[in-house]
Design a protein around this nucleic acid. Sequence first.
DNA 1: TTGAAAGCGCTAACAC
DNA 2: GTGTTAGCGCTTTCAA
Lengths: 368, 368
Amino acid sequence: MAGKRTRKHSLVKRLDIHDVARHARVSIATVSRTINGVSTVDKELARRVWKAVRELNYFPNTHARALVSGRSRLLGLLVSEITNPFFPELVQGFEEVATQRGYEILIGSTNYDPERMKDCIRRMIERKVEGVAIMTFGIEGPLLEELAQRQIPMVFVDAAPQRALMSAIRVNYRQGIREGVQHLAVLGHRRIGFISGPLVQRSAEMRKAAFLESVREIGCDPPQEWVIEGDHTLEGGVAAMERMLQLPEIPTAVMCSNDMTAIGALRVLARSGIPVPEKMSVIGFDDIHLAEFVYPPLTTVRMARSSLAKAAVEALCCHVETPDQEPPRAVLAVSTSLTVRQSTSYAPSAGQEESATAINVGRSEKKQ
Amino acid sequence: MAGKRTRKHSLVKRLDIHDVARHARVSIATVSRTINGVSTVDKELARRVWKAVRELNYFPNTHARALVSGRSRLLGLLVSEITNPFFPELVQGFEEVATQRGYEILIGSTNYDPERMKDCIRRMIERKVEGVAIMTFGIEGPLLEELAQRQIPMVFVDAAPQRALMSAIRVNYRQGIREGVQHLAVLGHRRIGFISGPLVQRSAEMRKAAFLESVREIGCDPPQEWVIEGDHTLEGGVAAMERMLQLPEIPTAVMCSNDMTAIGALRVLARSGIPVPEKMSVIGFDDIHLAEFVYPPLTTVRMARSSLAKAAVEALCCHVETPDQEPPRAVLAVSTSLTVRQSTSYAPSAGQEESATAINVGRSEKKQ
DNA sequence: TTGAAAGCGCTAACAC
DNA sequence: GTGTTAGCGCTTTCAA
């Protein structure tokens, strides 16, 4: 009931640019210029403005700024689901770099549901994001159109449509996968299988291709049955490994397209009484937080998701801040490298000497 | 170089309320009223407005709305770090409920760094959030003042300062912890230890208190040395369990204040050749994603973080939407319950009969 | 170099 | 019931 009501909607007068101007005995234009770092402002006036800002504890209203400047300083981040262990590190990196550059981030989780994805896109458009990073596994074409129509820059992973304002971050899958395969080779493995992700996904396909190249490089050519399609889930890993164990001949090492798949595979092996790594080595991909804690701790190819995030923010900002020149459409930005833990060891039948020889031939593997 | 430049800043004219009004042959006020669901609008005109909105694919500009209405429809969410496995589920729940209610969420990770926390608070103030959920483990008083000064509602977990616009979500720690202790009792355990969190944290203290009450309830009173202070990290769990194993007498079961602590404890036990659960049972708390995947899969007390998030959003919205009546300061909203996995079993020396008897006496434990 | 004033897109008071 | 209009807080001409 009490309280001085000096505005329609609120009980307290909110500080605005006029208050600062009055306090510093200048015009609001000068306050605005000072805060925005326009160089023509007189030193003395600028000093007074900053003093007033400090004393009054003034923060500019971003909505007003956005309205007049047409720049929201908002970036959208579209992910599949935050609870998927792949994403938290990505979100963290994205937030860090974006806020550093003065952007705020709007997160949308699609939960693999086209309706929710549509909703996320609507929210982003309403809030006038200046760019969107599409980090979901797959996206509906028509929804992209919504963004494209509004000239909103987009960045993708691996591959982007060939259009203006769209770019892609490239991940160097080969690098880490090759390291993983060489690591196995050094340990004497020659019979190496692979459980892929869903091959409709570009990144899953690229990982598989990188694997095949790498095994051929060490002179192996695994039979088709040793290359099984999974779906990047734990259950998929379980199913794939079960199929593999039914084969008349099984490999001594299996590489997986992501860690969840590898963890599923590990489960089946544990259940089947096949000790890892003694009877079979397993390598994952991604290096999610979990990988370190499963049993045995998973040897895996690490993809630095914070670099991915950083590259995405930069690509977006590049579009926004230099709208005239078309930026490079694809940035090779993210490297991968092997993290050796305890799910890999010597091939069961490989003699000690053979391995020792191989070690000298192989390349060293270390964490990046 | 081409492109029709109809505005200062952009190459494309952005759709606004005037375009819709023109298209529907009504005034902008009618468009605004229609979109905001004001009931006095003529049916026919409303129909025309909606048609125009659809045809033009119009989305209102939230910045303009925020500016004039004083309502940003933005909620702040302050967390310690998104990569801490405790948080993703919380963030997901928060996003889900907030967007359902038409709010957008602004995430800030403090990374346990006061400077970054300060930065997060600044960002939230600049963007004019209508409320902030403080989900960090601890916060600096002066920073709260910044928000309080600006009449921004806040919601905390467990305990909030006794002030206007601040409320707390209460977690029913006792419920789940009691279930856990009873579960151990049923399995014949009488020698039960506890590794707490950092006791400066209110929630850690509450968990410890709940544990002590619960063990006393089953007629046990563990010696002081069996109640060790950890710090809710894996390393803390390692250190605490190492200390415990040095004791002349060790318990047959240990409850931990959170899952990371339990995972640390599990490591030490594995290293020391003490099989879990045969020689020692371990129970965690939180039920983070990881718990299911460690070896052995961790029996743990689940706290539904999505309910926590939901309660937080509701408390905040309650403040915002009915500013006159002071809402309940504390909401008992989050229940906990036991999830039994494989890190718990019969007490080593307990006879079969004893356990069997106990089973009938004890309460059944199931997932909620 | 500075200040006055227009206007960003919208909501809400007020007049009809 | 509908339209006209005055701002919301800011940036950015434009004139001085």
